[in-house]
Write a protein that binds this DNA or RNA. Structure first.
Lengths: 202, 202
DNA sequence: CGGTGGTTATAACGTCGTTATGCAGTATAA
DNA sequence: TTATACTGCATAACGACGTTATAACCACCG
């Protein structure tokens, strides 16, 4: 029973994720999810308690993948390279998973807000950044002793660039040039932060 | 005729803005807008071509107010103080108009995307930032000669912090401490950018 | 055998943005 | 003045959305 029924659960989750990534959040309706999963709309309510429950699961899974990408980038040896590597991993993940990123950091699903349990899982992404900041501070590289503020500064800056790239609409520049500008901005930003947050001149 | 009919147009726009700012974008339905404006739902279609047209007008008006706030902050004398003042004005405006900011920079209205005309108006906000960067570059203060990348770096960093503050959900910290951390982060970020983007050590 | 709990499909509900229909009121032309 | 055309608006309806009430199915257990 359990193996068979959780098969439809997995089918629903897979269908929701597939629709989200290939067609966007607007196409992710309960009726379409059920059609792709090969069941009735009731399945979403039986196994996820409704659309928000399914979105919450997708949201949490996305943050876990995101955290994993950030933690993998922390394997670099030098602390400063660690932070730069994390910033690159952050941006790379967001560009590889643009639909998930919008789900995680913009309020694209009208009524949705993540569950407390999912928020705890999401906080681990921040811990990954904070860890790199602490490593750098332990070697006396940082100007500020406010580790949280330094970590949130890095998060904010990279997120801001990624977010503006994704929303896109408030600049009249066409697509190819915008991507090039974003790439140049990323390096300018990382270098400025590395120079401004650490004690040594770059 | 024209004066009377544009009165209902103004009433609809005012009702939409009022509902957005006081109750959020979810409450901004066509039926409620019409009820507050004292007309039928048809009025939204007669005067704005539909909900998206009304949202587009609100979006454009918000960007014009936003641009004005940025340009006013440019009146400071010293170029570096100009840039800092703009960053402060940016954050202050976003905290004073959180609902508009989410409308402008997150995709909170499901089907909406701004019109070409509105995007041109929005690009003037970027021009305000770019002007301050050019002034600073004219005095030889900047490390990089890529004015666009420098301006977009500043935009991204401030937007990122503001955006994370507004979405809020991916950290498990309670409200009062988060606001304090955001304030501390803002100063750390501005100082780091000022030091990292300019030639003189701060 | 009958009953029980879990899973499901069908059909419906209320709300959303949108629109077809029709009705007032006004301006223009004969 | 009458006829025509047009503008602005309300009513009611349409399709799509998330959700749910109803009832049927099915494995299990007395």
């Amino acid at each position: 029973m359990s193996s068979d029924s959780s098969a439809t659960q997995a089918a629903i989750l897979e269908a929701g994720l597939k629709i989200l990534t290939t067609e966007g959040h607007q196409a992710m309706t309960v009726r379409r999810i059920a059609a792709v999963a090969g069941c009735s709309t009731i399945g979403v309510y039986t196994w996820f308690g409704g659309k928000d429950g399914l979105v919450d699961t997708i949201w949490r899974n996305a943050f876990e993948s995101f955290t994993e990408a950030l933690e993998t980038a922390k394997l670099a040896t030098a602390p400063l390279a660690k932070a730069k590597g994390q910033a690159m991993a952050y941006r790379a993940w967001s560009m590889a998973h643009p639909m998930q990123y919008q789900l995680m950091f913009m309020k694209v699903i009208p009524g949705f807000s993540p569950s407390d349990e999912s928020i705890v899982a999401a906080a681990r992404s921040y811990e990954a950044l904070l860890g790199a900041v602490r490593d750098s501070a332990a070697k006396g590289e940082l100007n500020s002793s406010d580790h949280d503020a330094v970590a949130l500064t890095m998060w904010s800056c990279v997120h801001g660039l990624v977010s503006l790239d994704l929303v896109g609409g408030h600049t009249d520049q066409p697509e190819p040039e915008r991507k090039l500008l974003s790439d140049r901005t990323f390096t300018v930003m990382i270098d400025a932060l590395a120079a401004g947050l650490t004690k040594q001149k770059m």
